[in-house]
Amino acid sequence: MNKFLFFLLFVAVSLGYIFEIDQLIARNFNPLTSIKKIYVNNAIKTQNNIERYFNQVTTIERLQQENQELKNYKELYHASHNELNSILEMLGETNFQKDDIKFSKVLSYIDFDNFTKVWLDYKKDDDSILGIISNGFAAGIVVNDNNRAKALLNGNDKCNYSIFVGKDKAPGIIHKAKNKNHLLAKYIPIWYKIKVGDEVVTSGMDNIFYEGIKVGKVVKIKKMQDMQTIEIEPYADVLKEKYFFVYKKTIEKKKEKELLETTNK
């Protein structure tokens, strides 16, 4: 009887070894394995939460700093604006300036052989000439064509506006250049000293733009007897743009404004 029990025990152990039953039990029924999995998962979740927290803290600090900078710019703007108003009042200024900038979409080309003329999605019912701005740079002008807004972009032969060149603000007028990648500025007085690399900005003297919008930089100078011309590498890549900002400046009589405000009260 003892021999028979011993034989059965020997057979059971042999079969367990052959089919790796002990390892199967250890893999599936070992409580330490479950505890280890729970620990690893919790550790990973905790690490992710810590990283997310520190990322949020960094983002909040950056946004707070940017917000503070914007507040500073706002205060500087108001201070400059108030100072300008005070100066105008001291000078007895009779006119005031009202600026208007609107976002406008390019509808289509006007002529398929001239990409510098396009229709804009903009209401234009007067004969004023407006300025076009692209990414902060002067890009052309807008004129009225049968109550439609026709944009004449930089490089068009009828796109003209006044500019200043360099630190001395040498005056000139933008024209089309022979090089399609450049602009030409004409009628610059000969006594102004201009050098290659000087920056060109709008002058605002023609009421098309306000002063200081960047146009490009000087790449070539040609001097004549009583004037000089320059070639400009423009900053605005107008032929690739599908949207523009249209700038409008209007000058109104201060007395008329005050009378209108009094009437409306």
Rank of each mutant, 00 (worst) to 15 (best):
V40R: 02
D99M: 12
V143Y: 06
S14I: 09
Y161G: 05
I132H: 06
V143N: 02
V238A: 01
Y247W: 04
M227F: 10
L91Q: 08
I110R: 08
V143D: 00
F112Q: 11
K253L: 05
K45N: 06
H81Q: 02
I50W: 11
E252R: 10
E20M: 04
F19A: 01
I50H: 07
I208E: 01
A151V: 09
E93S: 05
A138V: 04
P31S: 04
V196T: 05
G16R: 12
N207A: 05
I230P: 11
N207E: 07
H175P: 04
Q47G: 12
L84Q: 07
S34K: 00
V57D: 12
Q228I: 05
R52S: 14
K222Q: 12
N48P: 08
I213D: 13
N49I: 14
F6N: 14
D127Y: 02
K117G: 14
Y161S: 05
G92Q: 03
I173N: 11
Q23I: 07
E211C: 03
E261V: 14
I129G: 12
K3D: 12
T46H: 12
V13D: 14
D111C: 08
S134D: 07
E51W: 14
N42Y: 15
Y77A: 01
Y17K: 10
L63V: 10
I87F: 01
T202N: 06
S14V: 13
N48E: 04
I21M: 04
T250H: 02
I110W: 15
Q68N: 14
K242I: 15
G136T: 00
L88H: 09
A79T: 02
N28L: 06
A151N: 11
N181H: 11
D126A: 09
F137C: 08
E20K: 12
K178I: 15
E233I: 07
N146V: 04
L5H: 14
G204W: 01
D22Y: 00
F6K: 13
N207M: 09
E231F: 03
A151P: 03
E258C: 03
K169Q: 10
G140L: 02
E233C: 10
K193A: 15
I188L: 08
L15K: 03
L15A: 13
N264W: 15
N28E: 09
D111L: 07
Q228C: 07
K150F: 02
N49D: 10
R62Y: 12
V142H: 02
W191K: 13
H182I: 06
N207H: 12
A26V: 05
L152H: 07
V106Y: 01
E61D: 13
D198M: 10
